[in-house]
Design a protein around this nucleic acid. Structure first.
Lengths: 397, 397
DNA sequence: CTGACATATGAATCGTGGC
DNA sequence: AGCCACGATTCATATGTCA
């Protein structure tokens, strides 16, 4: 099984390259020096090591999707925890607080910078957090050049109630979804699949899903939960389905017990997980080994018109489906135009594509000529889009 | 009227008393110099001036509650057309323009520092924003020593859709609720009032409320909206009811058309508003003048029992109740279809929702997929509607 | 007066690919 | 890299119009 290959094995294969990079610490001040030595992406692998160090070893622009569930920097009664779970102990609490935030910011910027480097230009990143850390994460990623596409609220249908009655029940967590930069084009968003998931209404930025419990919750031998913050697979299902395609590589730098890898495998995506805790990594490995891929057909997803092949209007004329000289009508016969042999339309004073002339006669900026123009038939007006669908159905494009 | 009293008149009245507290200022830029001149808080007043400058003139520790709806720094480019080619009227006002994140951060820290100074030790602060600005606001207030109590999600029941199908519908905004510092004791949280508002269940951190429209939306003489981002009174009603008591002073440094003041007056709180735009301030003044204190209809109407919550079929797939690839059967096994990962069904030659495909295979116009499609179990065929009822019973929608 | 139908609009960071 | 053609894309409400 793929999932058995470990970082160690793949490292052995390229020992030389790795030993070089190992000597360099995580500094972001010149990762270029290391780049030549980076091994190819170890796919369907759980890397047991520190997130920042191990991210630094991955090649540039190699990953389609990052999902990250970093430490939340929870500041509980009487103690402050560093990202590495050591306690901050100081005398002055205000100083503690500042030190804690500053350290957390430093940690956050370090792993986000590596995640940015590792992402393909068309890749996107998800980070989940709560009010303890999500603002710091958001600022860090904006400052690093990521461009926020949405913030998504996971509304927990069964949150833990507030016991003291001094605050509102904390019933949600927040995810940030971001592209690599402001002008990033071509990122994956399976709009129509999301719409299908939501009874043919656009998927909104607030998702109602139950927390991970019951049989899905991994337990250790004593029956205690194996990980304190295991995320529900339903959440990852939606994230991965929305923003990746089968065969894509999904990276999770805080792998925990491997929910990201489990769902990625179920959905025929590849995964790379980084986890510092060997015990979590082992639980994750076993979990993922038990999972089988789905059959490819059921992983096909509702496609919109964008995914369909383009058919130039001229094709219909060339193939004799529309004769030169045919008159096309706008809705309700309020407009007419004549088809020319090259697939352009003429009206008095103008000629051009079906779209341009459609816009022109209506005095508008833009127009979809396929749905605007109609043929007169015995049964009334038929949109020319029907002919396009015929061509596509013939598979001749 | 109260709202006519100006900054100048109220300052003259009590110059002396303020000079004592002046030496204690928190701010980092040194507004101490001005402090000696601070007049008592001008209550039930709209101050027409710059937020930061006018905040600096208010006395220390004099306010019970701050509600702030600062500029979001939207960074819109070009125009956006709806599918029907009508133009979306975006926020292009000068007051929402900032040169960079750094400029926005500077602005944010300046007004938040003054808000911190002006708050009583038991006071709390609310800020509302979207993903464009809320992370910057959150970091700034954490760095200034505010202690986050909750982040509250306003889930809009009727948001504007995403017109290009490139992102999730941006269907919520975020509010941060914070106390003055980590150890602040005795802040107001009307737990039982919130519980009563929520059918005797603890009020959660996600609130479903409609946007401000219809008769509540203020219009100018031409019938255009008086302010591009007017907030619904229901939102302020819940905020003010939760975190203040009658007689308390509520300060809004970005008063706009005065929703905060209007609701404060209805609920017998005092208000102080700061608004730079004289026209907005004038609209707000007239609006608040029309309101009488004892207005009995200030009771929330948005709660009430909801209809049966909608459960998309895709939910069952996401939650693992139905695996992608599962075969569903029509009554008597006369029809079959396969479930895909996005909750759509496939039969040979077609795919779509459970309803659409149910209709398709029968050659009918419409079909209730919930009762038509069945799962094969040991006991025979079970309608998928049973699973929907299960989801509803769990209350997890 | 009522119901059916049409129109208007809201804090919006809203394309892609070929030449 | 820049330009430009192609052509895809909306939900919940409130209000207006007409029969």
């Amino acid at each position: 099984m793929r999932t058995k290959s470990t970082r160690t094995t793949s490292r052995a294969a390229t020992r030389k390259s790795v030993s070089k990079s190992a000597s360099k610490s995580v500094s972001r001040t010149a990762p270029q020096a290391r780049a030549a030595a980076r091994a190819p992406l170890p796919v369907n692998t759980i890397i047991n090591g520190d997130s920042i160090e191990e991210l630094a070893k991955l090649p540039d622009a190699s990953v389609d999707l990052v999902f990250a569930d970093p430490p939340y920097n929870l500041q509980l009664e009487g103690e402050l925890l560093r990202p590495n779970n050591t306690r901050v102990d100081g005398v002055d609490q205000e100083w503690d607080q500042f030190a804690s935030f500053a350290e957390y910011d430093k940690f956050t910027r370090a792993w986000l910078a590596e995640a940015h480097r590792v992402l393909k230009p068309t890749g996107t990143l998800w980070v989940i957090g709560s009010y303890h850390n999500i603002f710091r994460v958001g600022v860090a990623l904006q400052d690093l050049g990521f461009w926020v596409l949405n913030d998504i609220v996971w509304r927990k249908s069964n949150p833990m109630p507030n016991f003291r009655g001094r605050r509102f029940t904390n019933a949600h967590e927040t995810m940030i979804w971001a592209s690599k930069d402001r002008n990033a084009k071509g990122y994956t968003f399976n709009y129509d699949a999301m719409k299908a998931l939501n009874d043919d209404l656009q998927m909104r930025s607030d998702w109602v899903l139950p927390i991970c419990s019951g049989g899905e919750r991994l337990k250790d031998d004593q029956g205690n939960k194996a990980h304190p913050t295991q995320k529900p697979e339903s959440l990852l299902h939606r994230v991965i389905l929305a923003s990746s395609n089968p065969g894509d590589v999904v990276l999770d730098p805080f792998f925990g017990t491997g929910t990201t890898g489990a769902v990625a495998k179920k959905l025929n995506r590849k995964y790379v997980g980084i986890e510092r805790d060997a015990q979590y990594a082992e639980v994750a490995r076993k979990r993922i080994d038990r999972i089988s891929h789905a059959d490819p057909e059921s992983l096909e997803v509702t496609q919109g018109k964008r995914a369909q092949p383009r058919v130039p209007f001229g094709t219909l004329v060339e193939r004799g489906m529309i004769e030169p000289g045919t008159v096309l009508y706008g809705p309700g016969k309020r407009f007419k135009a004549k088809v020319r042999a090259d697939g352009s339309l003429v009206v008095t004073g103008a000629s051009g594509s079906i779209h341009k002339i459609g816009a022109h006669v209506q005095g508008q900026e833009a127009c979809n000529g396929w749905t605007f123009w109609h043929l007169k038939t015995d049964a009334g007006l038929t949109p020319i889009d029907v002919l396009r669908q015929q061509v596509r159905a013939e598979g001749s494009v």
